[in-house]
Simulated scan of single mutants.
Amino acid sequence: MQTRIMGTTMPVLEITMGPGEQVIAEGGDVAWLSPGFGLDTSTRFGSGGRGGFMSGLKRALGGGQLFLTEYTAPREGGFVAFATDLPGTIRELRVDAADEFMVQSGAYMASTPQVEVSVGLQKKLGAGIFGGAGVVFQKLAGTGTAWVQLAGEITEYDLPAGRSMLIHPGHLALFRAGMGLEFTSVRGVKNKLFGDSLLLAEIHGPGHVWLQSMTAEKLASAIEPYLPDRTPSSSSGNG
């Protein structure tokens, strides 16, 4: 199996596979692929070779999809490609017992069959964060390779034991599982969502964190003033 990440602002992940090799991805996320692939959709995929419907249900409740699709290369091999949803970057992660990861919901792109995708953390944060939906991180465990999409520019920090960082939840894209994470309200910061307090994630070392400069919510807020007004005019029903 060979991978190629193409492009800059809106990159594409291309995975070239030999006969019978497989990758798992969320249904409908494929951008293009060569002919002959076997496609199978099931709740059991993304469970690291274990589980079934309940594993898929837990994944769906955590913001992922109930069904994942397995792509199996034909006898002559082939390639499948996945495009990012937002401007940013694609990262390849090697997953094993010593390296498990927590990734923000929506960032998971694809993985090899023995990687387990599950809900790692789900927290209701209030109406100001993600439209009131709270924050969800999916856990990548098992053994294999996973690919994730991170938004905007990426800044990485390696936190030693005893050190911590305060991060806006939307910018915390990826971190190593096992790091302590809690949410705290910081008073004295005026902002349009929380008045005189700001809700931040506090993450504790040791471990590595990946922070993204863009969030879907900030992008939507930036372009909203330029979208057409779909509200019916008061005179629309007067002939």
Rank of each mutant, 00 (worst) to 15 (best):
G51I: 03
I167E: 01
L93H: 10
L150M: 14
A110N: 01
K124M: 11
S213N: 03
T84F: 08
V103D: 10
G20C: 08
A25T: 13
M17I: 01
S55N: 14
K123Y: 01
V95G: 08
L66F: 13
H168Q: 14
G64Q: 09
H204V: 02
G38W: 06
A141M: 03
S47T: 13
H168D: 15
A177Q: 12
P232I: 06
Q104P: 01
R50K: 14
G162F: 09
F194P: 00
A173L: 09
T143N: 12
T184K: 08
G62A: 03
T8N: 15
L57D: 05
Y71K: 09
A110S: 11
L68V: 04
A177V: 04
A220S: 04
S233V: 02
Y157M: 07
M102W: 05
I90P: 10
N191P: 00
G28W: 03
I223G: 00
L33V: 03
V148L: 06
V186M: 14
G188Y: 10
T9M: 12
D40R: 11
D99M: 07
G128S: 12
Q149S: 15
E217G: 00
K123G: 04
P206Y: 06
S47I: 10
E202K: 14
G56N: 13
G178W: 03
G52N: 08
G27I: 08
K139P: 00
N238I: 14
T215V: 05
F82R: 11
M102I: 05
F53Q: 02
I129W: 14
E100T: 11
G128P: 02
W32C: 05
G48D: 07
I5C: 14
V148H: 04
K123D: 07
D196N: 15
L66E: 10
Q65G: 10
G78W: 09
H204I: 00
L193F: 11
